[in-house]
Amino acid sequence: MNPVNAISFWFARKAQLWLAKKVPVVSSISLHRKNIFILPTTHGLLFAAATILVFVTAINYILSLAFALAFLMVSVFVLSILHAFRNLQHLNVRAAGAEPVFAGEDATFVILLQRNAGRFHEILELFFPKGLTSHANLLDGDQERVNVYLPTHRRGLLKAPRLRVQTRFPLGLWCAWSTLDLGMSCLVYPAPVASTMPGAVTASHSGKAESTHPGTEDFHGLRSYQPGDSLKHVAWKNLARGQGLKVKQFVDNVDDRFMLDWEMYHGLDTEERLSRLCYWVLSLSRSNVEYGLRLPGVDIPIGRGDAHRERLLSALALWNLKVAHDQGREHGGEGTWT
């Protein structure tokens, strides 16, 4: 690490610690004097430059009213600090959870904004560092749900970085912001990768029964689109009728119990194996079969249902993450992974 990097790293570290002390982790926070920061924007600097120009001209031409104009501009500039501050003051920011996503999708953190009596908040911008900016206004209702997105790159438990809530309202000369750690995290499943099931390992402890198995032979019905589905199977006619994105389901009549196993994709690396297993968890969960998962150190018995599926996906997401932990640190900007 070269000295410049070392110094900037040291400062960043100090800033993080200071911020951690000043704006600690809480799931719900009301913004006030101690956690709102204000700095001029580039527009503000431009305005200040115009003010200085007016002031210098006033001095040189000895124009009393140009002095007055310069002072009016200074006053407006300074007082708009208060307006920007007021626009955030007493805003209540609350974490309202995040649905699990597949790696590569945007994690969606739900933030609940609540206002106090007699206060309105306009043109709020919420974003995570490097994430998309979401806009919100609290004018009529008492509360507002805002989805704030953060891109995900790999599986794991994505700990949200500090959420930045900022506003440049009303004059755009100042940016008032607060940077909040609401202690939110989002479970990121491995990205599903379609693959064939090599030598389908069936459950050993129970007999086989005729049942349906997702396949390509017989039309079985429609169901909602899920990530990983092939576009070939999308029911376009239904979509055109406004019935939402549906997928035609085909089944093969085969064995109805599956044990997904780490060893099935022998020869591939960890993430590739997990992605393929993930695909099969999704595929199997759509058909009415029972399935289980076996990973080194993890053994989930055969079952079915949404809860069962989530359990398997979580296991895939979190399996053996101790190695990934340190890598995540380097990407502090995009959130920490555990």
Binding site: I59, N60, Y61, F67, F71, L72, S75, L79, P170
Partner: peptide, 26 residues
């Protein structure tokens, strides 16, 4: 509202900010 709020402050600055002589002739 913003301008009206700014006017008292403007008057204070107008009356009290020390006036300097011209920096250069125009």
């Amino acid at each position: 509202r913003i301008v009206l709020q700014a006017i008292p402050l403007t008057i204070v600055l107008f009356v009290l900010v020390p006036r300097v002589s011209p920096l250069w002739t125009m």
